[in-house]
Write a protein that binds this DNA or RNA. Sequence first.
DNA 1: TAAGATTGAGTCTTCAATCTTA
DNA 2: TAAGATTGAAGACTCAATCTTA
Lengths: 178, 178
Amino acid sequence: MSRQHDESTAIDHVEQRRRQWTRELPDVDTVGMAVLGRARWITLHARPAIERVFARHGLDTGEFDVLATLLRSGPPYRLRPTELYKSLMISSGGLTDRLARLEAAGLVRRVASEVDARSLLVELTPAGRKRAEIAFREDMQVEKAMLAALTPSEREQLGRLLAKLAAHVAAHGEPEPG
Amino acid sequence: MSRQHDESTAIDHVEQRRRQWTRELPDVDTVGMAVLGRARWITLHARPAIERVFARHGLDTGEFDVLATLLRSGPPYRLRPTELYKSLMISSGGLTDRLARLEAAGLVRRVASEVDARSLLVELTPAGRKRAEIAFREDMQVEKAMLAALTPSEREQLGRLLAKLAAHVAAHGEPEPG
DNA sequence: TAAGATTGAGTCTTCAATCTTA
DNA sequence: TAAGATTGAAGACTCAATCTTA
């Protein structure tokens, strides 16, 4: 276990869990938990503060995700439902319901596709565009504040390592086992 | 933006998103997304493979989390429901339902507390202990395999940075804004 | 009075079946 | 035949109210 220097080896919640597991099942290598378990833990514990941002604007995370995907796609802020639910990793039925709610709130509208009569394009309304932008700005502020414990260099390092991992998970995480 | 060397700056999905946002809203600093967005993305995309592990043993993630929390607590594998739902970050009602399912499957049982007549202790049955151990072992194998893209040194670095971030999120992520 | 746990109503989701158009 | 989208039934969760015991 060659470890270069132990200066800031914080004993966080996940480290405590790993020690419990080592006591209970000493032969199991929990290195996956050190990375993926922490990513999950951080995601889970960062969520309440972020959800409060969305809630202030009458949105839940799922609804915001739809609006944000449309907004960052750029003008004319239009996507096909199929693109949306695949990108959001939810079922097609789940997306239909989200769109119904957002449409009732006047934040998106469905327009008929000119090239495929089966498809309804989903479009951000001006109100939806405004709502998404404000919520996104506040979200980014909150998330940035959560990184206050890290130096700029650490953030960059962390981002780079996570990107490398993400690329690998994208390639090997999804497919069915052989 | 002093960057030491650009060797492996992978353009992952999150980097693509950040570029979309920069095109749409150039003045927004998306550094939070570089870290927390990636953590969320990785968590989301690692999930299907892990859920397949649990599903092979007749469990969903929520049920496994209960069993795993009990198992790693060590003998006699008993916890109070209040400890469980707080640690799992779900509502008390949600836990009650999970326990009902697990009890019906014979994986946990409720025993009356000797010190507090309001409380029913939740205990792993031998079958539950076995189930949890097997599922956990496979889960750790799958998660470890997902880290194959990283060198041991990178894993350690990533783990350490995430631990530092986790400690900060734990301290400042949850509380209500002033 | 407050804490531990359960209940029931309401919400968001998945899954499988359906309808329409390519 | 297959793809795009919707529907309805079933599942797991949250929230607020409730019951019991400290």
